[in-house]
Design a protein around this nucleic acid. Structure first.
Length: 368
DNA sequence: CATACGTGGAG
DNA sequence: TCTCCAAGTAT
């Protein structure tokens, strides 16, 4: 149970903490592309939504250029809804968690269609939309619509776990941390408060070396008082990552086009383009077995080296085989000129494989 | 409640 | 090299 839960949800002490945090935020708020400043018109819900989806498990630095590109190409929800899904996937390529891009597009179509182009302003309605979960619904309600909502992301969990010295490891502590965050959240300026908590976590209450001397909440922080701030929140240890292996087939036509194919809509890298390969599995691929999985009969040659990539839950090792295609009459997949690769929805792991194929075939000489 | 789902930067 | 972890969601 709670090691140190406040007896009342909203004590005067908590309220002063919120006040101090907001005062700190007014002085230290970072200027971010999707953030409005004091005195500006209210935040555009489309921009808040777009940024929040992109920021799920993704750093501010990484999101920056993608947010600018999306906003330039699709300045409002109607424009995004009208875009072909493949264009959205291509623009998203490299950001990761590609289900977000598919849900983003579906959500845009729902808002632009049945919702008449207007984002819901209530958490419960936002929660019904694809790609919007508990955190994002609260963040949009608070930041775009000024409603009191309890916004809890990884930063807030860390800040609250330290403030109240919650020693239960995550994820078991999630419900308790949410309750404690609720008790801290003020009625007014809920959007600023949420962003202040997240900024505090991102710049002061850091995971490894918290800068407690700069923290506006230091005097209230029970973990700091106990000298264990750096060790919180505790986390349940994660399982080791297995290694999966595959052989990728670098098939080039006489005109220099490369064979790609689209992955299934669901699952890993769903809907994205890929270099054709054997299935991904732990056991290495004997040559004869890989041969049988090739997209065409050809004189396959193994390129030197190995492509390594780590996903969320496994390591990936890819050997690349290269061959020259006799014709472009191949069912599964489509041919793309090397110049056209930039316009394909290729995730990072596939760009690594392509870069490897490009350099190794150049070193060894085309093929045959 | 557990697991699948990307990528890049920091230490 | 390796582990951690970042403005989480869906199932």
């Amino acid at each position: 149970m709670a090691s140190v839960a406040p007896s009342k949800p909203r004590s005067p002490q908590d309220y002063r903490g919120a006040e101090r945090l907001l005062a700190w935020y007014d002085r230290h708020a970072r200027t971010l592309p999707w953030r409005t400043r004091q005195g500006d018109p209210p935040a555009d819900p489309y921009r808040v939504w777009l940024s929040e989806i992109m920021l799920q498990q993704t750093t501010v630095v990484t999101v920056g250029p993608y947010f600018a590109d999306f906003l330039a190409r699709w300045p409002n929800v109607a424009a995004l809804a009208a875009a072909p899904l493949d264009d959205v996937l291509t623009a998203w390529a490299g950001l990761g968690y590609y289900a977000r891009a598919r849900n983003l597009h579906r959500c845009a179509q729902m808002v632009a269609g049945e919702l008449g182009g207007v984002f819901p302003d209530r958490e419960a309605e936002l929660l019904k939309l694809p790609g919007i979960g508990r955190y994002t619904a609260a963040a949009i309600a608070a930041i775009a619509f000024g409603q009191r909502a309890v916004v809890v992301d990884g930063n807030v969990e860390r800040v609250v776990a330290r403030l109240f010295k919650v020693e239960t490891p995550l994820p078991a502590a999630k419900a308790e941390l949410h309750r404690l965050a609720d008790g801290l959240t003020p009625e007014q300026r809920a959007g600023d408060f949420a962003q202040a908590m997240m900024d505090l976590g991102a710049t002061v209450c850091l995971p490894r070396r918290p800068k407690c001397l700069l923290c506006p909440l230091e005097a209230d922080c029970q973990a700091k008082a106990a000298g264990i701030a750096q060790g919180l929140p505790r986390r349940q240890s994660k399982a080791a990552k297995p290694t999966r292996r595959a052989v990728a087939f670098w098939l080039m036509a006489a005109d220099g086009a490369l064979l790609l194919r689209r992955r299934p809509e669901k699952g890993l890298l769903g809907g994205m383009m890929e270099v054709p390969s054997t299935p991904w599995r732990e056991a290495p691929w004997p040559a004869a077995e890989a041969q049988a999985a090739a997209p065409a009969a050809a004189e396959w040659r193994e390129l030197p080296g190995l492509v390594r990539h780590t996903f969320t839950h496994f390591h990936f090792e890819v050997t690349v085989w290269a061959a020259r295609a006799q014709s472009k009459a191949i069912d599964a997949g489509h041919w793309v000129s090397l110049d056209g690769l930039a316009d394909e929805a290729l995730p990072t792991v596939m760009r690594k494989i392509i870069a490897h194929g490009l350099t190794q075939t150049a070193v060894v000489g085309r093929d045959d």
